[in-house]
Computed example of a mutant assay.
Amino acid sequence: MDLFEYQGKQYFARYGIPVSPGAPADTVDEAVTAAEDAGYPVVVKAQVQVGGRGKAGGIKLADNADEVREHAGNILGMDIKGHVVRRLWVEHASDIEEEYYASFTLDRAAKKHLLMLSAEGGVEIEAVAESNPDAIVKLHIDPVDGLDLATARQAAVDAKLPERALDGAADILVKLYTCFTEGDCDLAEINPLILKPTGEVHALDAKVTLDGNAEFRHPEWEDFKGLTEMDDREKMAAEKDLQYIGLDGTVGIIANGAGLAMSTLDVVNQVGGAAANFLDIGGGANADVMAGALEVINFDENVKSIFINIFGGITRGEEVAKGIVEALGRVDLKAPIVIRLDGTNAEEGRQILADAGIPEDKLRSEPTMLDAARAAVALAAGA
């Protein structure tokens, strides 16, 4: 679950991370009230889950109530890269001496948490990595050991933060790590992390992604769902209890298991294609689940081919095949299917598909993931 900026800041505040005083607002009058409570000057910020708000006119400085009314009225309802602004965050404006970058995420390959810290903040970290990779300090943290203040301070030294920012930055890094771990985040990012002329270090922005698998531990997360942005595909998938994320490509993806689904996206990209989605059907690939998955994929007008990638473990190949055959009788697909079926009872499953008499221009089987990806990408390109 991706949080809006204001939600991320509220989450940070629970862990003692200093953020600007402010409040959300859904109307112009609420924005004025929030500004008066925060104290002028204030920043009126569009709350959308997309970058480029400032360039689009979605972030404005205001010195008085009239300016807040003007900016709030202009920003509410604004379309920023396809995202309509329905809520604002109004906060006290901060004086900035320097801007840094800090984040925690999980490095799955290393099986450790990863701190990324840079003295070059305020821009996309990808841009820093491309132009000056040495400006980013990467520190792996063993979850058993955690992060202490001395290690956090040394990371700030290695990142070449100025002396006057070291203690404040180290304190925030430890608190951000606590937020990341105890708060069950997939990502906890501050960009920019600022140094004020007074010497205080402060989180000026917040990007937080919560781990949905930990939701049972956090009933309070229910409050975050009100303005969660989902496109029509994602809404349909949610209604069918499918793990789905919409993307912009032309190859629809169905896989059993999040790891395999991610690998499938990677291999499609590797052979020159682009995935239209991430869709994990988990271990229960029966007819109802498969039909639901195909209905969601079929709803996407951009999908030109469908790549079903199944590796049977607990999931048995013949059950997957039966599910696909039955699902095809219930869903009138607009795009052809390429399937790679391997693992438990895969031969039986492939035989069931062969015996079903489905025309090859509607469904074809390939022996490997790479072969199937190439076939799906070729079909999408030729559509």
Rank of each mutant, 00 (worst) to 15 (best):
D2A: 12
F4P: 06
Y11Q: 12
A13L: 01
P18Q: 04
A23K: 14
D26Y: 15
T33D: 14
A38S: 10
G39H: 08
V44K: 05
A46C: 09
Q49L: 15
I59F: 13
G77Y: 08
K81P: 04
V90I: 06
H92E: 12
H92M: 10
Y100K: 12
F104Y: 08
A110D: 09
K111D: 12
K112Y: 07
L114M: 14
G122W: 14
I125V: 05
I125Q: 02
I125Y: 07
I136R: 05
K138G: 01
V144Q: 11
V144I: 15
G146M: 12
G146I: 06
A159T: 01
G168T: 01
G168C: 07
A170K: 11
A170C: 02
L176C: 02
C179W: 12
F180A: 03
T181Q: 03
L193I: 00
E200N: 08
V201E: 04
K207R: 13
K207S: 02
F216I: 03
E222V: 14
D223F: 13
E229K: 08
M230N: 14
D231A: 02
R233E: 15
R233V: 00
L247P: 02
D248N: 02
G249R: 05
S263H: 10
N269R: 15
N277C: 05
F278Y: 09
L279F: 01
I281K: 09
G283V: 02
N286V: 02
D288R: 12
M290H: 07
V296D: 00
F299D: 08
N302P: 05
I308G: 07
N309C: 01
G317V: 01
E318F: 14
G323A: 05
L333N: 00
P336I: 06
P336T: 07
V338Q: 09
V338N: 04
D342T: 09
T344A: 13
A346C: 13
Q351S: 09
Q351V: 10
A354Q: 15
A356S: 04
E360M: 07
R364W: 09
E366N: 15
E366Q: 13
A378I: 06
A378P: 10
G382H: 15
